[in-house]
């Protein structure tokens, strides 16, 4: 059947069947390259997307649940200033993101920076529990996110 949903700010039309998972439709039909998702159990966190602004595992979702929803993937954020700031801040903090967790970490970071008005350290660490990767120090991630939010706050106040 044909369904429509908002993908990264654009209306996306796809043909789906009941057996397909959201991750498969997003990667095969919509050209999304940031998702891998090999576990199909929501355990690896490499298939994270934002559904109506909230993180969900696209490997656990049937594709038919995408209909009429707003979906964002890491691709949506890559050209934003905050994205490059976060990326460089994480590198500075010494957390070289491994390829498998890169999508999830950056997506969680961008969600916190853009959508949560003033995330607490606890909220930042909690968001990281969606990404099951040992290669990043949670404190480094929290420091980076908080630093960017602070930096952007100062930047917004300046004329």
């Amino acid at each position: 059947m044909n369904i429509e949903f908002d993908l990264n700010g654009r209306v996306q039309k796809v043909v789906i069947t009941s057996v397909e998972r959201a991750i498969d439709v997003l990667t095969r039909q919509c050209g999304i390259k940031s998702l891998s998702g090999t576990c199909l159990e929501g355990l690896c966190g490499t298939c994270l997307i934002l559904l109506e602004g909230k993180p969900v595992y696209s490997c656990l979702m049937p594709a038919f649940m995408l209909r009429d929803h707003r979906v964002e993937t890491t691709e949506y954020f890559t050209k934003m200033r905050e994205y490059s700031l976060l990326n460089s801040e994480l590198t500075k903090e010494g957390s070289a993101l491994c390829s498998s967790c890169h999508n999830g970490i950056m997506l969680m970071g961008m969600m916190l920076i853009r959508s949560v008005p003033a995330p607490t350290r606890g909220e930042i660490l909690s968001s990281l529990s969606n990404v099951h990767c040992d290669s990043i120090d949670p404190d480094d991630f929290a420091d980076a996110v908080l630093k960017i939010i602070q930096h952007l706050g100062i930047a917004r106040k300046m004329p």
Binding site: S18, E20, R21, L40, E41, L60, R67
Partner: peptide, 20 residues
């Protein structure tokens, strides 16, 4: 089904009602 069906393709009854 989310965590339970671990095959690539999902399986449901012949008729699905999505109530979300």
């Amino acid at each position: 089904f989310g965590y339970i069906q671990t095959t690539r393709y999902l399986s449901f009854e012949p008729s699905i009602m999505y109530i979300g």
